[in-house]
Amino acid sequence: MDFMNWLAAMPGAVAQGMIWGIMAIGVYITFKILDLADLTVDGSMVTGMATCAMLMVNGWNVWAAMGVAFLVGMVTGVVTGVFHTVMGIPAILAGILTQLILWSVNLKIMGKANQALPARNFDVLVTQLRKYESLVYLALACVIIVAALYWFFGTRYGMSIRATGCNEKMSRAQGINTSFNKVVGLALSNGIVAFSGALLAQYSGKADISDGRGAIVIGLAAVIIGEVIVSRMGHNFVIRLSGVLLGGIAYYIVYQTVIFLGLDTDLLKMLSALVVAIFLAIPYLKKTYFKRPVIEQKGEA
């Protein structure tokens, strides 16, 4: 391995990692906070890419394009949320249905399977052609998102969303509209995912219909890696969200590294999925095969 080349690839890896870290924060909201496995993201990621690319191609300002991408992403979350809460479809299936709907929608948004968004011709915020400048913008986006979510989930309403994911029965008993909260959580999650898609389209200079394939797995990988990274740093929400961002970055550094080591890139998706599978299995395996004897708790009230 040529160390200098590897080093030169790092800024790019970190930038991509931040974009996927933001995406993973969206996954964190559904997977960890709402306790829902939402597969909408494979579609909403591309919806964000396509929306941003098409708007910019049509002369929109980059900020407005990213804003609309965020809003459209929220709508995709609402669709999944309505499938799940109003129509009673299991969350995983609801997400898969929306994902498939979005495949068609994304094709319609772009009018074809891919759309170029070359940084030479468009005034994009982040691009692999200007990696260091992009890193600054991405870091700023990360800070703003983490701060906004810290505020949101610390409010009375935000706390009721956390309660919904933690204990639905208790939440309803405390007057919380759990169905509505799930829809809001899914909307917020997919809005963030689509926003990260908007960043990715700019960064890579294109939007492709298949760019979102397996996004959920990368998002979960980032969430899981992030948990491991910050596991000993307390339960503060900012630390946990930062962990997810670090997880995304770590994922992409590893990704670049294994490519440099000459790994067949065809195998990358499989390896990502296997890593996620192993980490998801650990709690179950621990419980089932490495059970510790239960310590009796005596009757203190």
């Binding site: 009375r156 935000g158 706390m159 405390q174 007057g175």
Partner: peptide, 18 residues
């Protein structure tokens, strides 16, 4: 946090700090 959730039972929750 649990107590704060219960404190708003039957009331609007809004976006003030919990």
């Amino acid at each position: 946090e649990n107590m704060a959730l219960a404190m708003r039972r039957g009331k609007s929750r809004g976006f003030s700090w919990a």
